[in-house]
Amino acid sequence: MSATASSINKASQSGGKGKRQMDKLLLQILGYVVITILAVFCFIPFLLVVSSSFSDEQSIIEEGFKLIPTSFSTEAYSLLFKYPEQMLKAYGVTIAVTVIGTVLGLFLTSMTAYVLQRKDFKWRNQFSFFFFFTTLFSGGLVPWYLMITKYLNMGDTLLVLILPMLLNVFYIIVMKSFMNSIPEAITESAKIDGAGDFRIFIQLILPLAKPALATIGLFIALAYWNDWYNALLFIQNENLMPLQYYLYKMLGNMDGMRKAMMQSGAVVNMALPTESLKMAMTLVATGPILLAYPFIQRYFVQGLTIGAVKG
């Protein structure tokens, strides 16, 4: 784009050319400066957590958290990995919920989207509205909460961490608009060959929808990985705490942490390096996302692009 623009510029030797080049340069400099500053602001908090988690507890108490630790220590991590039972349990819950929720949610999202975009399905608009309306109006927290705890009886189960987040209308809409770009002829010719709708969906449509599946799957997985809200509302059993909720609990309640460690055999009257431990736990709970992030980031960008273009 900039290549064509500059060649046009060269071609038209008008008088304002020098000034226009200046404007462009000015904007470039402004762009680099502003974006660098914002990017640094986006990144510094993460560095703070990392450096705080590697700081010596005594130095934190005396001088506070610092971007560059005055004295380096891995005490928090060695403690975390010495008594990892609770943490591992929380990891297990989160991984199970994320895997099951993503697979099931993705399957249902795409199956629903496929039916809704079938032009020959007479009631597709009515059903689309049935789903869309839920984004406009809701009964609020209380009836939803009572539905889940009292009528469905799902409190304190693994199911309550999966089911309420299974489907999202916006993902159905994005998937639907992606599937609109798959030629209708595929469905039509398969029907003529005698294939059923479900088989067409599984064998023909799903493979073609792979890019959208990857993107939406990652959005769903991220939502499950980061969920703590359903646990806050519905989970009391310590063995069912997902990772983010476990972190939430520990940040607010280091005594609980001490107790959990005592149960797994730590020294009773040990003084915990509370502050660095909080930051170390934060990092361990975010770790997999930070590690996977560089590789999965482009799928999110792709997904937003699909959503933005198709509205």
Partner: peptide, 14 residues
């Protein structure tokens, strides 16, 4: 990409 819990921890740090 990070949960609000982690944002809460960052806020605490700051």
């Amino acid at each position: 990409f990070i949960s609000w819990v982690v944002v809460g921890a960052i806020a605490y740090n700051l």
